[in-house]
Simulated assay, not measured.
Amino acid sequence: MNTWDQRFSQPGYKYGTDPNRFLVEQESRLPAGSRVLLPGDGEGRNSVWLASRGHQVLAVDNSQVGLDKAVSLASARGVTITTLNVDLAQWTPPAATCSGVVLIYVHLPAGIRRAAHRRLAQSLAPGGWLILESFHPRQMAYQSGGPRDPDMLGDLASVREDFAPLLEEVLGWEGEIILDEGEGHRGPAFVTRYVGRMRTA
């Protein structure tokens, strides 16, 4: 059992069952009924919400325990999601098949992050959207969640480098917010936000 399996095997939902607020703000960019890829979606709060909005969702995670809870949450909400248990460090999704990629608090070691980010971005069809929110290196001074390893945290400049020139940046921001996402993310936090669009030509 890996670390995330152990974490998700606890009762309840570590990060709650409500969707991430930034995702909710950005979801209107996605065409109705979009195919959306959610790497690292854990217990499924974001994938289940997107499915409830009518999107076709693939939730990908290295924790089967988390994915099983995501399926249970989807069933309780009366929606269907597809899940896949893989390691993002090695997995390559089919190219140009999605209208959206949603990366919400998906923290990978710096040595593999850029390659993984680029593989995920390349799954976007022309005009597709990538929506990202993650903890910034300055999160190390906060106690509201996230890895305690600065190597797994990215500022806006590093995120931009990961996706350039594949994506056209539509929104880029880093700053303080207040989190209220279950017991795992609660209180003031310093985050990086990015929205990019796959070029059409």
Rank of each mutant, 00 (worst) to 15 (best):
V36N: 00
V101F: 02
I112R: 03
V57D: 02
I104E: 01
S47E: 03
L132N: 00
S72R: 15
T82P: 02
P109M: 12
G44T: 08
G54E: 05
E176K: 15
R21P: 07
V102G: 05
R113I: 00
T83G: 10
D41K: 09
I177V: 15
A96Y: 00
V71K: 11
M198V: 00
M152L: 15
A164C: 06
L37G: 05
L84K: 14
L108C: 04
P93M: 13
G66L: 12
S9D: 13
A32W: 10
L67K: 09
T200K: 09
P94M: 07
A157R: 15
V195M: 01
L153H: 03
T82M: 13
A32T: 13
P137W: 08
S52V: 04
T192M: 00
Q6N: 09
G12T: 03
G66A: 12
I178V: 15
L167W: 05
R186D: 02
S123H: 04
G175Y: 08
Y15R: 09
V86M: 06
A74E: 05
R7A: 13
I177W: 06
P109T: 11
W91K: 03
L166G: 08
Y142F: 15
A51V: 13
A189C: 07
S144K: 01
V170H: 13
P126L: 11
T80G: 05
P147F: 08
Q139L: 12
A116C: 15
G33E: 10
V60K: 01
K69Y: 03
